[in-house]
Structure formats: C-alpha cells, structure tokens
C-alpha cells in the first residue's frame, strides 16, 4: 500500500476525503436496542433521536489516515479526536484533513495533520489531530 504522504509533502497539503451517507442500518446489531438504533432508547437519554456510533463515524478519519500514511498509520500512528456533537444516524459525513507540519522527531520523519468530519450542514462534528511516521 503506497503512502500518499512523504518526507517531501508540504504543509497545507490536503488529505483525501472519505465520505459516507449513513443510514440506521449501519448501526444495527442483531439483538440490541441502543441509543444508536432505537427511538425510545435515545429519548430516555434525553436525545431527540438515535445518534450514530462515534467510533464508526470516526472510522472515516481512520480510513483517510490509512490511505495517507500507509504503514505509518498501522505502526506509529497517533490520533486525538473530540466528538463535538452527536451525529444523526442518517447524516452524510465527510472526513477532511490538511498537513500542518512535516518534522524530524528524534530521527524519524513525522507528518502532522488537522483532521475533522463535517456533516451535511457543514458542521464540524468531530475535530482532532493525527500524525504518523513517513518514509525518510
């Protein structure tokens, strides 16, 4: 798997977008009524409707990081994400990212990025940073 980011990638380079039109079916597990699948379960928790499972939405970013960093994501990748607001189970989401630094850290070349997920309204529902080693 060829990494897109290298030691020569400039600050400001844009990461590939990864998008998904979520549906309730994405979050269904066979035998569970959860805040992700069940109207009443969600309402009991004060939510107006079922909400997407955070890790499954965040996975759009992980797919983006795998494509961007290749092996560096699997071995040496770091990510910190903040879930700013619930995502509806039927929302459209797209992961975006931009390179913020390309630095030498203790002899290892590391690329740092801002990453985020926007919903259909353009709201940044998940924001964070990620980094991983790249080929020297």
């Amino acid at each position: 798997m060829q990494a897109l980011l290298t030691k020569d990638t400039p600050v400001g380079a844009v990461l590939p977008e990864v998008a998904c039109q979520f549906t309730l079916a994405h979050f269904k597990r066979s035998d569970e009524s959860t805040i992700h699948t069940d109207e009443e379960a969600a309402r009991k928790e004060g939510l107006s409707a079922p909400v997407a499972t955070g890790p499954q939405v965040a996975a759009l970013i992980f797919r983006q990081l795998r494509a961007s960093f290749g092996a560096g994501w699997i071995e040496g990748g770091r990510c910190e994400l903040t879930f700013r607001r619930p995502v509806r189970v039927d929302d459209f989401c797209v992961a975006r990212g931009v390179v913020t630094a390309n630095v030498d850290v203790g002899g290892t070349r590391r690329v740092e990025c801002d990453v985020w997920i926007e919903n259909a309204a353009g709201d940044k529902v998940i924001v964070g940073r990620a980094s991983a080693p790249v080929d020297a």
């Binding site: 955070g54 990748g77 770091r78 990510c79 879930f83």
Partner: peptide, 11 residues
C-alpha cells in the same frame, strides 16, 4: 456519550 479519543498505534 463518547467525547474524546486519543489513540497511539505502536505495533
């Protein structure tokens, strides 16, 4: 609800 997730993939 999940609020913040920090992860480091070492191996």
């Amino acid at each position: 609800l999940f609020y913040r997730w920090e992860m480091e993939n070492i191996r």
